[in-house]
C-alpha cells in the first residue's frame, strides 16, 4: 500500500465521529492495561481486614472492598486481565481459524465441504455454551477462560476467512501468479493474505469486546478467573451483594467493562466503514 493512500485512510477515519471516539476510548484502556499495574497505589490482592468497605477517602480514592482491598488498584490492574483475556483469546482464535479458513477455501472440493460441516457443528452451539461446556471439563481459571473463548472464536474466523479467500481466489491476479509459476504456498502468503486481512482486522476488533463480555459472564457464573485475581467481571459479580450499600464496587468495574467494549465496538465499526464500506 502506498504511503499517501495510508495517510488518506487515516484522515478519512478521523472524520468518522464514532470511530474516533472508539479509538480514543480503546487507547485509554489499552494504556491502562499497559501501565495500570505500575500506577496502582496498592497491591490489588492485599487484604486489610481492618479497613473493609471503607468508602471514598484520601488513602483509597474509590474506597475498599469487603476484603479491604483498594478498589482503584484493582480496577487499574483489572484492565490488564480483562483486556488481556480479550486480546489473547481473539488472536489465538483468529490465528487458528484464519489458517483453517485459508486452507479450506484454497483447497476447495471435498475437504472444504467437510471442514465447513465441522464449522457448522461448532457454530450450532450459541454464545456462552461451548465455553461453559469446556470449563465444566477443565475447571475454572485464567487459562481455561482464554482457551474456551479462543476455541469458539475459531469457527467464526474460519468461516469469515474462507469466504474472503473464495472471493479473492476468483480474481485474476491469482491466476496470473499461477501462470507465472508461483507455488501455491507463495500464492497464499503474498496474494491471499493481504486481501483477507481487512475484514479480519475489523472482526478482531469487534471480537475482543465480545470475548471480554463472555469472560465477565463466566466470572458471574463462577466459571471464570478465580479470586483474588482482579478481573472486572469477577469484581462486578462480587459487588452484587453491595449494590445498595457500596454501589461504587459495582460501578467501577461495570463502567470499565462497558466503556472498553464500547470503545472497541465503535472502533471496529469505524474501521469497517473506512476500510471497506461494502463490508458487513
Amino acid at each position: 500500500m502506498h504511503r499517501t493512500v495510508r495517510k488518506g485512510l487515516f484522515w478519512k477515519f478521523l472524520r468518522h465521529k464514532s470511530g474516533s471516539l472508539g479509538l480514543a476510548l480503546s487507547l485509554v484502556f489499552l494504556l491502562m492495561a499497559l501501565f495500570g499495574p505500575g500506577l496502582a497505589p496498592y497491591d490489588p490482592s492485599a487484604a486489610d481486614y481492618s479497613h473493609t468497605l471503607s468508602g471514598i477517602s484520601t488513602q483509597h480514592w474509590l474506597g475498599t472492598d469487603n476484603f479491604g482491598r483498594d478498589l482503584l488498584s484493582r480496577t487499574l490492574v483489572g484492565a490488564r486481565y480483562s483486556l488481556g483475556i480479550g486480546i489473547l483469546a481473539t488472536l489465538i482464535g483468529a490465528g487458528v481459524g484464519g489458517v483453517w479458513g485459508l486452507w479450506s477455501g484454497y483447497a476447495g472440493g471435498f475437504w472444504d465441504s467437510l471442514s465447513m460441516r465441522l464449522v457448522d457443528v461448532l457454530l450450532a452451539f450459541p454464545g456462552l455454551l461451548p465455553a461453559i461446556g469446556l470449563i465444566a471439563i477443565t475447571g475454572p481459571g485464567l487459562l481455561p477462560v482464554i482457551m474456551a473463548s479462543a476455541f469458539f472464536s475459531v469457527p467464526i474466523f474460519a468461516r469469515l476467512v474462507r469466504g474472503s479467500t473464495l472471493q479473492m481466489k476468483e480474481r485474476a491476479y491469482i491466476e496470473a501468479a499461477h501462470a507465472l509459476g508461483a507455488g501455491s504456498r507463495r500464492v497464499m502468503r503474498v496474494h491471499l493474505l493481504p486481501s483477507v486481512l481487512a475484514p479480519v482486522l475489523v472482526y478482531v476488533t469487534l471480537r475482543i469486546g465480545t470475548v471480554m463480555l463472555i469472560a465477565s459472564s463466566l466470572s458471574f457464573l463462577g466459571l471464570g478467573v478465580q479470586p483474588p485475581t482482579p478481573e472486572w467481571g469477577a469484581m462486578l459479580s462480587d459487588a452484587q451483594l453491595y449494590l445498595a450499600t457500596d454501589p461504587l464496587l459495582a460501578i467501577a468495574p461495570g463502567l470499565a467493562i462497558t466503556l472498553t467494549v464500547l470503545g472497541l465496538n465503535l472502533l471496529g465499526d469505524g474501521l469497517r466503514d473506512t476500510l471497506d464500506p461494502k463490508l458487513k
Binding site: 461495570g254 462497558t258 466503556l259
Partner: peptide, 11 residues
C-alpha cells in the same frame, strides 16, 4: 445503540 451491546447483561 453500541452501548447496549457493550454493557455486561448482569450489570
Amino acid at each position: 445503540a453500541v452501548g447496549g451491546i457493550s454493557v455486561p447483561s448482569f450489570f
